[in-house]
Every structure is written in C-alpha cells, then in structure tokens.
Amino acid sequence: MIVTKATNTFLPTPTVVRGNSRASIHQAREATRAFTDQLSPAPDPNLADTLVLVVSELVTNAVRHGGGRYTLELTAGPDAVRVAVSDPSPLPPRERTPDLNGGTGGFGWHMIRRLAANVAITPGPGQGKTVHAALLC
C-alpha cells in the first residue's frame, strides 16, 4: 500500500495473477475488480468496467494465441491504471477482421487499442512478450 501525501491517494501494491487455462481468465477478471475496489479515491465505475474488459481481452489473447499461459500485473498511479500481460509467445498481437457470423473472435485487439490511452509491446520475459496498456483516471 502506498499513500501519496500530495494527492491523498491510496495506491494498492501491484497485483500479480498467473494463469494457464481458460478458467483462469475469470480469476484475472476477479483480481482486477478487487484491485480497482482498493483504489482511493474510487475510480469512476466506467473506468473499473473498462479495465476489467481490457484485462479480460488481454489474458484471453494470451491463453488463445500466446502460448496458453500468462502473467498479469496491475499497478496504479495518481493519473493512470496500468496493465501488463506477459506470455511465452514472441509474436505480437495482430489485427484481424472481426468474425461477425462465425463467432471466432477478432474483436479483442481492436477493443484494447481503442479503450486504452496507451498500448505498447515489449520483448520478454525470456522469448515471450509483454503487452502494456494504460487507462487514464
């Protein structure tokens, strides 16, 4: 826990979640909701919902396309909430045309890039990558 005196803001310690299955995606969403519930002042409910959606899409992409496992790290600062999702695949996310009829997806990466104020991809850990997203408070 960190309390900044200048802004009287409570910033929880980073939250880390590891998962390796579709079932763990729910765990990541729950951990994200618990993380936002600890922030003080409380974020706008729309921001909290958007953060849960971004996390859900990032960890789903990691499970489906990034090697089947992920590490999620959530951090907060006075002006932004940050998400980092690492997976073992070195391949960056790619845009594809959303499947409007077959239900095979294609919406996630578009949503992430639209909802986050900043998105970046860095190499590592190991041979994998980390996708970073920031949402402004």
Rank of each mutant, 00 (worst) to 15 (best):
V3P: 06
V3D: 09
K5N: 11
A6R: 14
N8P: 05
T9F: 13
P12S: 08
P12K: 12
T13P: 07
T15N: 08
V16G: 02
V16E: 10
V16D: 04
V17W: 02
G19W: 02
S21A: 03
A23S: 14
H26C: 15
R29N: 14
E30S: 15
A31G: 05
R33P: 12
F35V: 00
F35K: 04
S40M: 12
P41T: 07
A42V: 01
A42I: 02
P43W: 12
N46A: 13
N46L: 14
L47A: 10
V54C: 08
L58G: 05
L58C: 12
V59S: 06
T60Q: 08
A62K: 04
H65R: 11
H65W: 13
R69G: 04
L72Y: 00
L72G: 01
E73S: 10
L74I: 02
G77M: 10
D87V: 01
P88R: 08
L91I: 13
L91S: 11
L91F: 11
P92G: 09
P92E: 12
P93S: 14
R94I: 15
E95D: 14
R96N: 03
T97D: 05
T97I: 09
P98C: 08
N101G: 11
G106P: 09
F107H: 11
G108L: 04
W109I: 15
I112S: 02
I112D: 00
R113Y: 05
R113P: 00
R113T: 07
A117T: 02
A117D: 13
N118R: 15
V119K: 08
A120G: 13
I121D: 02
T122W: 01
P125A: 01
P125G: 03
Q127M: 10
T130W: 00
T130R: 01
H132R: 03
A133K: 02
A134K: 12
